[in-house]
Design a protein around this nucleic acid. Structure first.
Length: 421
RNA sequence: GUGGGUGUAGUUCAGCGGCUAGAGCGCCAGAUUGUGGCUCUGGAUGUCGUGGGUUCAAAUCCCAUCACCCACCCCA
């Protein structure tokens, strides 16, 4: 093959797009029920947005962004996540002047990260996510988690678990950072190179390191939950109460820190586990300081991102069934030139009346048209030959029962609809 | 960024120094010149990933390269 799709990208073929459309329809319906409206933002943003929003100590920004200079010399980045762009959109359109909260979602949002691809991890993937601004209460956090769970459940994903944590706010995290640095400092030489560089700027991320030696050191580290200020501790308790109130089972995992620096207070991950798969499908949290950090007003935010390719993969591995697309209702099989002309007019008339009708564009033999109709799963075949032309009718064959009957051409659409019910 | 595996027909794969490179599935056609599914028969499709090397002889061995898959890291 001459040209292949770039590494880490994936085509959706016409035969499988119905699965995507099904998930997208579910997501839209659920968001509508929950009162979220769709937003669409550009695939490219100024690199500056992610440096300030996502955080320049994160792996995403340090080594995974698709960044380039455009012809005007501006540094442009393909978005590596959905929140920063949504926040920029919120500020640029002065949505903070509207009554709050602002509840929005994005769907099939392309996200780019330069990383080694493998199952469920692509360089270009698509996210479904929600963003809520102007809602300080923990019930909003619980609502987001519930929205994500509702979609995952309705998509048929099995083996879900919700893990939550709080990573504090600017008033309590510095204290925790000091305690953490005090603890880690005494083991500094044992840390990996990356963690040594994280030590000054963002020691919290060291807890997230998967290097064995760092993990061992982190085991005895003080946890942030012991250091939360009264506000953050109360928020976390409120979240737990809200989740309990809607029967959402959860686990507290004090080691979740997330890969993005903008998070404050609540962070959460939804993990899917099956025999053949185990991984995060959904991750999110609260980012009360983000808008301010981007030059906007002081206004809280919360949201999550969900990888759609992963969702689809895990749903299928869970044995989920997606409703099949509508099959061809009638195939017009013709014999001879005159019948072809009449047949093409007929197929268009049927479509106008809302019948899913199909017609031969290949020049197959009459017999082959039948075979093809069968392959399409057509419920009926309307036969049009010299006999039928003389009678002004088609011979309509029910492909399930093999029964045939003559139907006058003007009555065909109506007859097919009746038979289908 | 680190480590492992695999590249042969549309697809899943067999062949692992030696005859004209094969099979299942799929595709096309015929058996049935006005009728599908099942069956039978026939057919088409390959720069054996790419480039180089070893050899009388390479899909097969060696080197390089590219792509894909997997694990780690990270993440959705």
């Amino acid at each position: 093959m001459a040209i292949q799709a770039p590494k880490g990208t994936k085509d959706v073929t016409p035969a499988e797009s119905y699965k995507w459309q099904y998930i997208e329809k579910l997501a839209r319906e659920i968001c509508d029920d929950f009162g979220y409206s769709e937003t669409r933002t550009p695939v490219i943003e100024h690199t500056e947005l992610f440096l300030r929003g996502v955080g320049d100590t994160t792996d995403i920004v340090q080594k995974e962004m698709y960044t380039f200079d455009d012809k005007g010399g501006r540094s442009i980045t393909l978005k590596p996540e959905g929140t920063a762009g949504a926040a920029r959109m919120f500020l640029e359109n002065s949505l903070f002047n509207e009554p709050q909260p602002t509840k929005m979602y994005y769907l099939y949002c392309p996200v780019f990260r330069y990383d080694k691809p493998q199952a469920g991890r692509l360089r270009e993937h698509h996210q479904f996510g929600v963003e809520v601004y102007g809602a300080p209460l923990a019930s909003a956090d619980a609502e987001c988690i519930q929205l994500a769970l509702t979609l995952l459940n309705r998509a048929g994903v099995k083996g879900l678990s919700v893990n939550i944590n709080s990573i504090g706010c600017p008033s309590c995290r510095p204290k925790y950072n000091d305690r953490l640095k005090e603890y880690l400092g005494s083991n500094f030489d044992g840390l990996c190179a990356t963690c040594k560089s994280r030590f000054e700027k963002n020691p919290l991320r060291i807890l997230d390191c998967k290097e064995e030696k760092c993990k061992t050191i982190c085991k005895g580290a003080p946890t942030i939950l012991d250091c939360l200020c009264d506000t953050c501790a109360a928020h976390f308790e409120e979240l737990k109460a809200c989740l309990a109130g809607i029967d959402v089972e959860y686990q507290v995992d004090p080691f979740i820190v997330r890969g993005l620096d903008y998070y404050t207070k609540t962070v959460f991950e939804i993990i899917a586990q099956s025999e053949s798969y185990s991984g995060t499908v959904c991750g999110g949290g609260r980012y009360d300081g983000l808008l301010e950090q981007l030059g906007g007003p002081e206004m809280p935010g919360i949201g999550f991102g969900m990888g759609m390719e992963r969702l689809l993969l895990i749903a299928e591995l869970s044995g989920a069934h997606f409703p099949l697309p509508r099959q061809t209702e009638v195939y017009i099989a013709t014999m001879g030139e005159e019948a072809r002309k009449v047949g093409f007019t007929l197929v268009n008339n049927l479509r106008v009346k809302g019948v899913k009708a199909e017609f031969d564009h290949v020049g197959r033999s009459f017999k082959a048209q039948f075979k093809y109709a069968n392959k399409l799963g057509a419920r009926f075949v309307a036969v049009l030959g010299d006999d039928e032309l003389d009678r002004g009718a088609v011979k309509l064959k029910d492909m399930n029962t093999s029964e045939e009957e003559y139907v006058n051409i003007p009555a065909l659409a109506k007859t097919i609809k009746e038979r289908l019910d």
